[in-house]
Design a protein around this nucleic acid. Structure first.
Lengths: 220, 220
DNA sequence: ATTACTAGTAGACGAGTAA
DNA sequence: TTTACTCGTCTACTAGTAA
């Protein structure tokens, strides 16, 4: 419900995403321009939806936004970002080369995937991916990218197996055009980035494990 | 009203900020998970609030978000940005040195202003500002900065005159800590940036008019 | 197909009250 | 002071209908 989301946003503005914040229904009502009763009902509603956790004490209550609540807010933020934010995003992700599980090589060899990458990225993907572990300071930048418009890569069925969907974001390493690929809807480690490119990046850039790489995303 | 804002956002997502978009109440209702009747009433409500302009035709209507509507959405976007956006904003503004009106030098010599800059930026401002005209490609980045939390610089009265308020955003040129200063509430040219610093930037960096300067804003 | 009205209903609101 | 209940009102919804 829209009103609940507004309320959740106000709590987040008070710092509710970083830890419990203390306030009364009256205070919240003032921020929302409603009565304390309505503010109180909103908090109960948010708790029922598991968007916040509450601990009612004397003179007010401690409220913290849950992970589910934060996800909800980030979804909303991403929508606004699609309206305004796409101009002027500029990101440098720093990380070091790690050895992946070799799945990338397999998936990139499958025609249905190859064709989709070819069509949307403008190049045929090299059969293999480069895996990076991001520098911790790059993780916020990585999160920010989720608000951009990713290219959807659709799954398919073949030989009695289903191959999952994924999403892809165009980027660069120096002058080489690449794409960040994130598989499926499963939770993916936030510090890992998997890259497709028209060439074998390890060979082209003479990379070995632990070498530092900078990935550039410009979106303007 | 929260519901109206949600509706406005959906219209913006369809491209309503860039020009009129054509759709029916049913389509809109589907996006909002409401009946066509409610969607229709929402549109009437938005029109009454002058947040959109409408032109009803056969089989649907053309809707465009007005400037007032876009301002409303940007306000909301800025609030979400204050929750999430402050992590991982990284901006490089490129521009060339121009000669200002010399007002900066005067204002920076006034004690009430000087003290506020000193307190919030951590340095005493050099009496004088450096004016840059931004490269057009930097203007989107400049706009993005408006969603961050600026330091408010308060106005004051002295000698029968009022001195206006301003806002300031910490930044860097290389290793020199600076601040972007934007005066008052008046509309300021979007391609001009005025900088305060602890030193005279022209002298310190041997700058003359038309020299290229890169201003860095990191906010994490 | 639309938009926009009317009618009936369901749900949300604020006031009052108890703990 | 708080929170959270009940109660009466009123707004906002969906369904149906006309243009």
């Amino acid at each position: 419900m829209a009103e609940d989301l507004q309320c959740l946003k106000v709590i987040a503005l008070m710092g509710g995403c970083r830890g419990p914040v203390f306030f009364s229904s009256q205070t919240l009502g003032a921020s929302l321009s409603t009565s304390p009763q309505t503010a109180s009902r909103r908090l109960q509603s948010l708790e029922r939806q598991m968007l916040v956790t509450r601990s009612v004490g004397p003179g007010g209550q401690y409220i913290a936004v849950t992970q589910k609540g934060e996800d909800e807010l980030r979804r909303e933020y991403a929508e606004y970002s699609r309206v305004f934010g796409r101009e002027g995003v500029q990101c440098l992700l720093n990380g070091h080369v790690i050895t992946g599980l070799g799945e990338g090589r397999y998936y990139m060899s499958l025609e249905p995937y190859r064709l989709q990458f070819q069509r949307h990225l403008g190049f045929a993907p090299y059969p293999g991916t480069l895996n990076l572990r991001l520098n911790p300071s790059s993780i916020p930048h990585r999160k920010k990218l989720d608000t951009l418009e990713w290219i959807p890569i659709h799954g398919f069925r073949a030989e009695d197996r289903t191959f999952g969907e994924a999403r892809c974001l165009p980027c660069r390493i120096g002058d080489i055009r690449c794409g960040i690929v994130v598989p499926g809807r499963t939770h993916y480690p936030e510090d890992i980035v998997e890259l497709v490119a028209p060439v074998g990046l390890r060979a082209a850039l003479s990379l070995k494990d632990n070498d530092i790489v900078t990935v550039e995303v410009d979106y303007d």
